[in-house]
Design a protein around this nucleic acid. Sequence first.
DNA 1: TGTACATCAGTGAACGCGCGTTCACTGATGTAC
DNA 2: TGTACATCAGTGAACGCGCGTTCACTGATGTAC
Lengths: 176, 176
Amino acid sequence: MDAAGVLFRRHGIDGVGVDAIMREAGLTHGGFYVHFPSKEALAAEVCAGSLARSATRWAGLAQEADGAGALGAIVEAYLSPQRVAACETGCILPTLGADLARRPTAHPALAASIRAMAEAIAKCRPGAEPERALADLSCMVGAVVLARLAGDTPLSGEILAAARTELLGGPTADEG
Amino acid sequence: MDAAGVLFRRHGIDGVGVDAIMREAGLTHGGFYVHFPSKEALAAEVCAGSLARSATRWAGLAQEADGAGALGAIVEAYLSPQRVAACETGCILPTLGADLARRPTAHPALAASIRAMAEAIAKCRPGAEPERALADLSCMVGAVVLARLAGDTPLSGEILAAARTELLGGPTADEG
DNA sequence: TGTACATCAGTGAACGCGCGTTCACTGATGTAC
DNA sequence: TGTACATCAGTGAACGCGCGTTCACTGATGTAC
């Protein structure tokens, strides 16, 4: 049922109805309220869960691989043109961040996940100050927002390449 | 009439009706279509205009002041806690960026303004490569998105401080 | 084994509401003669 | 100067529609005796 996240990401939380979500799940809209008290509650749960899963995945990457390799894996995946183009999967921060910021209910859980994601990045940079990870995460989120706004113009690729260079300290192999 | 931008920023494009916009302007909703062909057209025009004005302002700052001072002025203003808290004024990129990315019509005008804003930043860093400005702008936009998501928790200030440090190369006076 | 009942996910019609848009109309303003 | 007409921003009722939510009901499943 959490495939509702796909529709939220594609059309925005206000852009999808309960009817569409339940139809996507192969059910009728009337049964929605057996599972969730309201559409807003579903949105909060889906987003908090998705972000928490991202944080866990990053923490795992940061722990198992070596530092530079793990950061490279995280950044390359986050900023790959395919991931940026496919907004219906992947991180909700660039897609629904502003939507969620207008809904104060979900803030605490999201803030915890943001902190966890930054800590995973910080673990990949043993030498640097831990605050830098927050700036890195900001750069990643902002780059995806801007690259999506640039659509399929050359600017999109330039933004992603610039962010990759800034985060990883030099150009890499798989340029888009 | 472009005070509709305030409502769009506060509630999202899908969160405001034509009725609310016209009431805010002191008129009735029926007269809306004398001025704009549709609500989507209004949103595109308001956002493109707002972003173009930001770009012009930044270009002016970059030209008149010295490089480091101009960049400091832009970044400090963009990342100040007051500006971040007041989402209904200020840059539309963190507030409506994801909303606009779902509306392909507006992309070309927005891409041009994003490029102009990056060029203003690049002019403030005569030594650095111009691509770095795109990463800087990404960092600013992402930091505002994340700081708003963190709400009034300490994380919000930490994110803004980290981004300021990353962009300006050290801590500054007016900490939030 | 068989009957009676409780549970509960899911159905589908219905509710009140606000949306984006249309349209006949008003009334102030400007222009022509 | 005065009359007749054109223009057009703004009004307010109305439209069809889809929304979030409710609710009486179904029907499969599990449990009790």
